[in-house]
Amino acid sequence: MSTATERVWAALEALTDPEIPVVTLRELGILREVNDAPDGLEVVITPTYSGCPAMGQIEDDVRATLAELGVAARVVTRLSPPWTTDWMSDAAKAKLHAYGIAPPHTRPPADVSVMRFIKRPVADVVSCPHCGSSHTVVTSQFGSTACKALYKCLDCQEPFDYFKPY
């Protein structure tokens, strides 16, 4: 890694998600690469959900940080490979949990039957981030944002968000 890319990584490391400020863009897997290409530095980001309204803000934050650093780099949005919650580190998941959001489960392995599109894993129990109880129930598949489902804990009675596997 060149000194220039190291400086860019260090600066971008500080950027957090506009909706969930306890995790960084790098931890979420949105910030993918900093490349020292022959025609200049390049920062690669990838969108989460296709319609995520935070992506515009994220791109602006990256550009502003680069400008502050005095580095001329272009910001490239790349779709492939598609973003997945499996890229989140355990540390990032622990931070989500501490923030009151149940972290995403690992995606189930691929299945070929057509019913895979509607099947739910039997053991997909989402634990309450407040009291740890696994006695929880889904209220809605879509919460405050597309990436989260709304759950309720039947023990402590608190509602909570579950970051859905993607």
Partner: peptide, 20 residues
């Protein structure tokens, strides 16, 4: 309320797909 949010989120996904 939950369905109001759900439909808005489904729309966001669809409009996001259309944009791409």
């Amino acid at each position: 309320l939950e369905e109001d949010l759900a439909l808005a989120n489904v729309s966001l996904d669809l409009i996001g797909q259309a944009r791409l």
